[in-house]
Computed example of a mutant assay.
Amino acid sequence: MTELETRVRALSCWTDPTDIAPLTGGITNLNATVVDGGRKYVVRLGRDIPEHGILRWNEIAVARAAAAAGVSPGVVHAEPGAVVFDFVDGEALTEEALHDPATLAMATDLVARVHRDVTPRLRGPVLTFWVFHVCRDYAAFLRENGSPHGPALDRLMAEAARLEEAVGPVRPVLGHNDLLPANFIRDGQAMWLVDWEYGGFNSALFDLGGLASNAGLPPEAEDEMLARYLGHRPDRPFRHSYGAMRCASLLRETMWSMVSEITSELDFDYAAYTAGNLARFDAALAAWKDMS
């Protein structure tokens, strides 16, 4: 029996767990599917990760509100180090899938439902996810821990300060804050969002910018996404603020990977992920400056 199977079997919610199988794709957790009592579930095994602002009590609170709003699978059980969700028999999206106009429209509508419908269903304390605070904290962590990316931090933090000023005042909503394509699950009739580790109050612009940047949307598709979300074509001031947050979403993903390079024990090429995201950030920043 593998360590994963042992940990899953040890959870207190089962009657007779069978068919335990690893679920690939996560880069901060171990995940598995399991059958119990004729139903299939997803198990996420993971501790708090303070350097990334991941606190499991917050993830569970947000996931429960998202399930109540019908945008995420139900939370079946939670105990220290583990959360059990209903299994959704669907496929995780890819960047290419989100380039399909109908799929992108579904994803945009789902993000709008998160911002509109999850927020009033939250109970108890919930974290705030302000990307510029996150990046400042990452920079301090990287300096304190001798990251090889230290020489780049002064430039990145100077750019972050300019972007934060450009974003301007915001109206906070509950955000998912990690809209990688694989966190959208399509089951043929509906679309769901999973992985609420970074859920918290934020500007809606961050989710929109994250969706566009993580999916590598071309400009015309990005315009359609914004128009669908807003219900009208965005004006120039909105585009300026949105563009700054889009850049910030890429900077955060870059610095997340820089931190993970020196902290994560998972088998993943974080150095390559850092390099790829840094290149995307620099390209987006240059395009935003050209538009400003």
Score class of each variant (00 low, 15 high):
15 T>L: 05
22 P>I: 02
47 R>N: 14
20 I>W: 14
39 R>F: 07
53 G>A: 07
49 I>A: 00
51 E>K: 09
35 V>M: 13
41 Y>A: 04
12 S>T: 01
36 D>K: 14
16 D>P: 00
39 R>E: 13
50 P>F: 14
38 G>E: 09
37 G>F: 04
20 I>C: 08
42 V>H: 04
22 P>E: 10
27 I>S: 07
50 P>G: 08
52 H>S: 02
33 T>V: 14
50 P>K: 12
24 T>F: 11
14 W>L: 13
35 V>D: 12
24 T>K: 01
28 T>E: 03
29 N>K: 00
15 T>V: 11
19 D>M: 08
38 G>Q: 03
28 T>S: 07
37 G>I: 04
15 T>C: 12
39 R>K: 12
16 D>M: 09
50 P>I: 13
22 P>K: 12
37 G>K: 06
36 D>L: 13
30 L>G: 00
42 V>T: 05
19 D>C: 13
14 W>M: 10
32 A>Q: 08
51 E>S: 07
26 G>C: 02
40 K>N: 13
35 V>E: 15
39 R>D: 08
25 G>F: 07
44 R>H: 03
46 G>S: 03
26 G>N: 01
11 L>M: 14
45 L>Q: 06
30 L>F: 08
34 V>H: 11
37 G>R: 09
15 T>M: 10
19 D>Q: 14
26 G>F: 12
26 G>L: 07
29 N>R: 00
17 P>G: 15
14 W>G: 09
38 G>V: 03
43 V>C: 01
22 P>R: 11
49 I>V: 09
49 I>M: 12
29 N>V: 06
36 D>F: 14
15 T>F: 05
43 V>D: 02
23 L>W: 06
51 E>C: 06
13 C>Y: 12
23 L>H: 01
25 G>V: 02
26 G>A: 15
49 I>F: 03
47 R>V: 04
31 N>K: 00
14 W>R: 11
52 H>C: 02
28 T>P: 01
29 N>A: 05
42 V>L: 08
40 K>W: 10
18 T>S: 10
49 I>R: 04
13 C>M: 07
36 D>V: 15
32 A>P: 13
40 K>T: 11
30 L>R: 10
41 Y>P: 01
32 A>G: 11
15 T>H: 06
16 D>S: 12
52 H>Y: 05
51 E>P: 03
42 V>D: 00
39 R>G: 00
41 Y>T: 03
24 T>E: 14
23 L>E: 09
50 P>Y: 15
11 L>D: 06
42 V>M: 05
15 T>R: 11
27 I>T: 08
20 I>Q: 13
48 D>M: 08
17 P>A: 14
46 G>P: 03
16 D>I: 07
13 C>G: 00
40 K>F: 03
31 N>A: 13
37 G>L: 07
16 D>Y: 09
28 T>A: 02
43 V>Y: 08
49 I>W: 03
53 G>I: 09
27 I>D: 09
19 D>L: 12
34 V>A: 13
23 L>T: 11
24 T>Y: 04
26 G>H: 01
36 D>R: 13
40 K>H: 14
19 D>T: 10
11 L>F: 15
37 G>H: 01
